[in-house]
Every structure is written in structure tokens, then in C-alpha cells.
Design a protein around this nucleic acid. Structure first.
Lengths: 201, 201
DNA sequence: ATCTGACGATGACATTTGTCATGGCCCCGG
DNA sequence: CCGGGGCCATGACAAATGTCATCGTCAGAT
């Protein structure tokens, strides 16, 4: 019997997935969590074989949870499920030691199959996402460029960014400019959306 | 027996919800769709009692589908389910003739209950969302202000906006400025996000 | 008939950007 | 030990933005 922990902040989805997995003869949902914090607590308590984590959760997100679990409970394999199949997320997830990565567009049968694969020690990454991730390549941004661009996400003025990263306004402008050039964007907002989409910030 | 059409672009969610609803004795899932177009086709073919529509779907989104169904199949009641419980969506949905509006954070039991309520001719709107929507109130933006702000969404420069709405650059700046002032925002990007959140653009 | 408010435009001005050149500091690899 | 590259900063200049005052038209309300 594969013991599974289910974490998703959306009640409806969590209950529905639980129902779905319970239908499988060899899978048992031993715990449910509605946030990253709950997921960690539940994992420590129930020591599941597989943790099925939603990527976007309040508190620590799915990837942060996976990272913690990887060091704390190495026997608990993590699978990330997400609605937003962005290439960057996949990379971050793999770096966090995740063993499976699936978009929510897959079928229920696939999910069960992946749970089995991962429980048996294998790995599974959605082929389409993997292709995209490879296509997206590595970030051309230097660490500080990425930092600055990240703070520019919500359209904050240069001065505010400068304060937050403790740099001068001029330097911030330079980094922003460099980032825009590297990403082939017309302005910084386009740069932000490109970088965000690729998971570079 | 309540005949339900289920539309959601995410296979996993769709299958899971179908499983969940099928467990109810008085509910039957008669059709599934992965896009707005499929949902319309399926509704015409199966004439369901209730259409459970995801808000964010490719092609026509959930609200557009609901609008079409309201005029074409008035006997088919629509329920919108969404991950993003933004006040503006609720208003748009109600205007489209939707009878139920739920965030995906509700429990499975609530969903089934709402399906029954709506099938019986009632309405159901998530109380929390309703409160937010009322709190958000009506848009203080004049029609053209909203237009211009809408085009500013993706961070396009003033000149581009001016072209699209066939106005002079100066006028666009004025409208943007007025919108920023009315929304109490610090800059136009903040204005965009405020207006978008409230559903005013 | 008059007033108000939305709509469209212009011009002027300060501020904020984007862009470029330049320079210094520090670390790593050849 | 020397070059390259990342990192931080400055200064200067053009372009884009934000803000304000002002003007005209038009429709609906008083």
C-alpha cells in the first residue's frame, strides 16, 4: 500500500483528488493539508511514502516544502502538481529534489501511475514541460540583475527598488537596462513578464 | 436525478470532480468538456440541468459560455467555479445570468449542496466573495478611462495605447493620470492592478 | 437657458525612465 | 600576475511619463 500525503490549498481539489486516489487499490491517502506549514507537520507525523504537493500554496509553497522534506524525510518522495506549467518552476522543483512534476492537465490515470512510479523509486516529469524547460535554457541574467528585476515585478519605481536592494538609483537603472537588453524586451515590464514566464526571477 | 455538465480545462480536476459528484446519489455527470467550445457543444447535445463551468478556460471563458447558454438554453443553470475569487469576476458572472458562484476553496459537500440548490431553481454565491464584491463597489472610472487603463495592462508605452484607442498621446496621459488619482495609486501599474483586481477593466 | 460632467486635445513643466560612457573594486582562471 | 567578468557607482543626455492649466464640444439634468 502506498501511503500518500495530499497538500493543496483548494478544498475542492484536495477532496476530489483524495477521492480519486482512494479508488486505486494500492494507494491510500493518509493525510491532507491546506498549506505548506500543515503539509510539513502532517509529513512529520504520518511519514508518508509520497507527498503530492500543489505548487501554489500559502505559507511555504510546494517547492519550499519539497526542499525541506528532502533533507528532513529523505524517504518521502515528492511530486509537484501545478496549474501553471512554467518552465522555471520545473527547474526549481528538480533542484529541490522533487521526483515527479505534473501539470493538472494530465488524466487521473496518469496521476495514479506517476504516484506508483515515484513510490517505487522512479522519476516522472511531464514530457511536454520538460521540452519547454530545455527550450527555455538557462537564465542569461546575472544574480543581481535577477534580483533587481524581481523587485520591479509589481511596477515599483526605480527609487523604491534601489532602497530595497540597497543600491543607488543609477545602478538599478543600469541593471534594469541590461536585463531588458538581454531578454530582448522593449521595456522593463515586458522584461519582467518574460523572465517571470521562464522562471528566471 | 440532476444531470450535470462539467467543464474544466484541467483533466485532473475534471476527472476528480466527476468522481466526487458521481458519488452523490442524486447527481449524474452526463458530459465533460475541456474548453468553452466543447462545453457549448456538449450542452447543446445533452441538455444538462446544471452546467458547472470553470472560470478560466481556453477559447470562450466560463462567463462567456454562461452568457451564451443563458440565451440559448435558459433551462440549463450555470455555476461558475474558480481558483481566483476576484470581486469583478463575480459581478461579470451575475450579469451573465449565472446562478451559482464558488471558489475552489469550498468543500466537496458544499459543491454538491450548491448543485442541488441551483438545480432546484435557487441561487448560491459564496458569502465571502459577495462581501468583497459589495465592498469593492462600482467603478469610479469613466468609460474611456477604463478603456485606456485596460490597454495599459501589459505595460505598453503611452504612444502604443494612443494608437490603439485613436487618441493623442497627451489625452492618454491625462486619462491615465485621472485613473491613477481616482484609484489612489502611486503609478499606473498599481492602478492597473487595483482596477484589474476589482474587475473594473 | 444654464450647468455639469464626460470627452478630446494642446502646451508647458518637472520627474522618472532608458541608454551610454566611464571608472573602481574584487575574485577567479589561465 | 594579468585579463576578464561580475559588481557598484557616477554623470550626462534623450526620451517617456506624470502633473497641471486651459480650451472646446456635446449630451443630459436642473
Amino acid at each position: 500500500m502506498i501511503r500518500v500525503l495530499l497538500a493543496d490549498d483548494e478544498n475542492l481539489i484536495r477532496d476530489a483528488l483524495a477521492g480519486l486516489l482512494t479508488l486505486e487499490d494500492d494507494i491510500e491517502v493518509v493525510a491532507r493539508a491546506a498549506s505548506g506549514a500543515e503539509a510539513l507537520a502532517a509529513a512529520r507525523k504520518h511519514q508518508p511514502d509520497v507527498a503530492l504537493l500543489d505548487l501554489q500554496m500559502p505559507d511555504p509553497d510546494g517547492i519550499a516544502v519539497a526542499r525541506t522534506l528532502a533533507s528532513e524525510l529523505p524517504d518521502c518522495r515528492c511530486i509537484i502538481v501545478t496549474s501553471h506549467g512554467r518552465p522555471g518552476y520545473l527547474k526549481a522543483a528538480l533542484a529541490a529534489g522533487v521526483r515527479g512534476f505534473l501539470p493538472k492537465t494530465v488524466s487521473a490515470a496518469t496521476l495514479a501511475e506517476v504516484v506508483r512510479t515515484v513510490a517505487a523509486g522512479g522519476r516522472h516529469v511531464d514530457p511536454e514541460l520538460a521540452a519547454e524547460a530545455i527550450g527555455a535554457g538557462d537564465s542569461p541574467l546575472s544574480p543581481r540583475e535577477a534580483d533587481v528585476l524581481a523587485y520591479a515585478r509589481d511596477g515599483a519605481p526605480v527609487e523604491e527598488i534601489a532602497e530595497r536592494v540597497a543600491l543607488s538609483k543609477g545602478t538599478v537603472r543600469n541593471y534594469l537596462s541590461a536585463a531588458v537588453a538581454k531578454l530582448g524586451a522593449a521595456n522593463r515590464h515586458e522584461a519582467v513578464s518574460i523572465a517571470a514566464d521562464r522562471g528566471w526571477i
